[in-house]
Design a protein around this nucleic acid. Sequence first.
DNA 1: CACGAGACCTGTTCGC
DNA 2: TGCGAACAGGTCTCGT
Length: 278
Amino acid sequence: MPELPEVETIRRGLLAGDASTPSLLKQRVSAVSILWEKTIAFPSAREFARNLTGKSIRDFGRRGKFLLTALDDAFLIFHLRMSGDLNVRPSLTEFHPHDRLILHFASGWDLAFNDTRKFGRVWLTADPQTVLGSLGPEPFDAALTREAFHAMLHARSRQLKPLLLDQSFISGLGNIYTDEALFSAGLHPLRSSSSLSEQEADALLTAIRLVLTRAIQEHGSSIDWVYRGGNFQNHFQVYQRAGERCSRCGEIIQKSIIGQRGSHYCPACQPERNEPNV
DNA sequence: CACGAGACCTGTTCGC
DNA sequence: TGCGAACAGGTCTCGT
């Protein structure tokens, strides 16, 4: 489910709290409930609970789609995969149907990791690099210049759609924002990465940053039964809009399967050919 | 190396 | 109405 904007929205919520829930900063873990053991990727469930108990939260960070919880001397790292979510609730609340892990805080509040499809994973480690080591650059990293991005695209020869979804190429993009960024840049999802001109590479990087910035401003997207206050679903140009008319040119939006994923694009605004568009 | 298929899971929607 | 198929915001592993 969550891509970079949704994880960023969750991070900010845990950091600041809201009208009905407190910030979790500086809160101390008094107990841990593990309801689905496979959610704990590292270490063992027993060690995880033992090592986490008594620790306090120092900060919430993010790297790609990973949420990094800085503790006294370790990091608690969440990946929400397809259906994961994090909720702050009063401790007396009963477990919800798909709760997989609960951190109980001394303050009387809980942090619940709820994950219908059980794909989500959590790590507790002193060295975050063991989990994050293979991630590509953050989309907003200042070191990711247009020249660097163009060089990255030409270092491989891959279809744009699967390449942008590859977290070792660039981190944080998922199916929604990849489709939206390719539309914004006017690039067909099957274009070969090594066919992009410098201008096209620059347009793609700009589009990625624009789409992510706007999605974060809208607190991410809310789709299906998952709702956490996000509003970006009302700004989709192509995602989930197959059969509708393109807002830019009026052509019918197409959907096809590319790299195992449903892909949405405008055949007129995103022409399919492997020569650079001038 | 690039790419497709299958696996991991549960719930909702679609088509006959 | 009912039931199986297809599909879902992600990632990993294997085979070609």
